[in-house]
């Protein structure tokens, strides 16, 4: 197939990334050509989108993502995002994007103070973004979460700003599993090309493994990447 029909999407691999392979599997299954990019690389190569996968980058013994933001690959991701490239951070990737200042807020320990792994329902608040275009407005998605620090927090004025601009794209629908402000499960940057979410869409693409609702998120990213690809080829 041509590179346009299978857009190249970078999956950044940090030491301690755990869901990088899952993300690669899912993106490939959804029609992308996922390429692993080592954290030490400061050049992403010719890619149409970037995924920061889940895991415990550098062990996350410090605040989650606090070390990963200093990696050479993050410099490249920042340049890519500044140029309008779509960037999706999943779980640890979301934490890293917040630490790097590419997304507002921080992820704090879950209110329960315990790690939690289970399917949750999230509501798509905006189906027009680069990451939700395969969803219907208000659609409920079932996607697993698995994190110890997923309680998104931002100061009230930031939350108000995000609410006004509709940048809280995904919200927990049946109970809030971690105590995040405004039930936020996924937030978007101002330019609309960087999103972070705590649920793991890459773990909800295969009917053998449960829900396939995550394919709507990752599929949207693949569509976005595909629409960008001609400009890059």
């Amino acid at each position: 197939m041509s590179p346009v029909s299978r857009p190249r999407i970078a999956v950044i691999v940090f030491p301690g990334s755990n869901d990088d392979h899952d993300a690669t599997l899912a993106l490939d299954a959804l029609g992308a050509d996922a390429v692993s990019v080592w954290h030490g690389e400061d050049d992403l190569g010719d890619v149409a989108a970037v995924v920061l996968p889940g895991g415990f980058s550098y062990g996350d013994y410090l605040r989650c993502g606090a070390l990963a933001r200093f990696s050479p690959a993050l410099r490249a991701v920042e340049r890519f995002a500044a140029g309008g490239g779509p960037v999706l951070g999943i779980c640890n990737g979301f934490q890293i994007l917040c630490e790097a200042g590419l997304l507002p807020g921080v992820l704090r320990p879950n209110r329960s103070l315990a790690f939690v792994c289970r399917d949750v329902a999230v509501r798509v608040e905006d189906a027009s973004t680069s990451f939700t275009r395969r969803c219907a407005p208000g659609q409920r998605l079932t996607i697993p979460i698995k994190h110890g620090e997923g309680c998104w927090f931002a100061p009230p004025e930031v939350v108000a700003e995000l609410e006004t601009a509709g940048r809280i794209v995904l919200r927990y629908a049946d109970g809030n599993p971690n105590g995040s402000i405004a039930d936020a499960a996924g937030v978007l940057n101002e330019a609309g090309n960087v999103m972070g979410l705590m649920p793991h869409p890459e773990h909800a693409v295969d009917p053998l493994l449960g829900s396939t609702d995550g394919a709507r998120i990752l599929g949207s990213l693949v569509d976005t990447a595909r629409s960008r690809a001609p400009a890059l080829v």
Binding site: C117, H200, L208
Partner: peptide, 27 residues
């Protein structure tokens, strides 16, 4: 208890914890 463990990473968990045995797919 088992919700405190990541039982999904690896994309093999066809049957999750909760009843008898878990099933892992040999992808």
């Amino acid at each position: 208890i088992y919700e405190q463990y990541d039982h999904l990473v690896g994309s093999r968990t066809v049957r999750r914890p909760g009843l008898d045995a878990a099933i892992l797919r040999l992808r």
